[in-house]
């Protein structure tokens, strides 16, 4: 972990360059970062909230907020995981040319994805305030959860990125896997509607607990489940440890095949 921290300056530079590359040649540039969450927020709060909210007794009137807060966490996680999984494959022309620490790329992606997330968070807070939501100390737990969630995404992403170096199929499979995982995470539904036989699977999914913290904060104004947060923290750190370990073991072969 201290080594990872030492990579931060380089990761931040790469992350800035990623953004510049991404919007190179476009007129609006980084404004696009804010347009996406804005459109999503509009769709979920206005359309889903108004049209489907009535069928969700627990979420009630704020179904839109419920979906938006869960989705904020989920989309950041999914984006990070998906991009991390292809981190080495996409950068093979750099990895094969200059000496660079392989860990810097996943790190740069994790940090980079925070920007659209923060844009979404600001929007969500703004919309929430308009709808009469009261900020609470739960926001601090949201930030901690965010940290764990990115760590989890990086850990899993690293594992997948190592596999992807040998078989590009992994990159494709990640998209499908994320689609399935999405439906095992209570983002558009509430957990209570689930039949018992899938409930345990949803409970095991760490993202369930991540979205729960967000939903508690923005919708229910209840208490965060410390057990849930503890579970996320442990799983996330385990994932990062596993990811870094596998990378360390396979690093030589990965460099050979890229």
């Amino acid at each position: 972990m201290p080594e990872l921290v030492a990579l931060f300056p380089l990761a931040l530079r790469i992350c800035g360059q990623d953004l510049q590359s991404r919007f190179a040649g476009s007129f609006l540039g980084s404004v696009w970062l804010f347009i996406w969450p804005l459109v999503q927020m509009f769709i979920y709060i206005v359309i889903f909230g108004k049209m489907m909210g009535a069928r969700m007794p627990e979420a009630g009137q704020s179904y839109g907020l419920y979906v938006a807060s869960g989705l904020l966490a989920w989309s950041c996680f999914a984006q990070t995981l998906q991009r991390t999984a292809r981190a080495f494959v996409d950068r093979r022309n750099i990895i094969g040319k200059v000496e660079v620490d392989l860990r810097v790329f996943p790190l740069a992606i994790c940090l980079g994805e925070l920007l659209p997330f923060l844009a979404g968070l600001v929007l969500l807070i703004f919309v929430g305030l308009c709808m009469g939501w009261q900020p609470s100390s739960l926001l601090l737990w949201v930030l901690f959860t965010l940290y764990c969630q990115q760590l989890l995404a990086m850990g899993l992403g690293l594992l997948l990125a190592c596999c992807a170096a040998f078989a590009r199929d992994v990159v494709e499979a990640v998209g499908i896997g994320l689609q399935m995982a999405f439906w095992f995470t209570p983002v558009v539904y509430v957990p209570s509607i689930l039949p018992d036989w899938v409930r345990w699977a949803v409970q095991v999914n760490p993202m369930t607990h991540v979205t729960a913290v967000f939903q508690q904060c923005f919708v229910f104004a209840g208490n965060a489940s410390l057990v849930g947060i503890g579970y996320i923290a442990i799983v996330a750190h385990l994932a990062v440890w596993a990811g870094l370990y596998v990378l360390h073991r396979l690093q030589k072969d990965i460099r050979d095949v890229l």
């Binding site: 380089l10 530079r13 360059q17 590359s21 190179a24 040649g25 750099i94 094969g96 040319k97």
Partner: peptide, 24 residues
Amino acid sequence: LELGTGFNMELSGRKNIYFNGTYL
């Protein structure tokens, strides 16, 4: 060995000095 690592064709030469320099 391989010059111009990290060059981005869409960006200006000046920006690319910084891109490539990072990797060097």
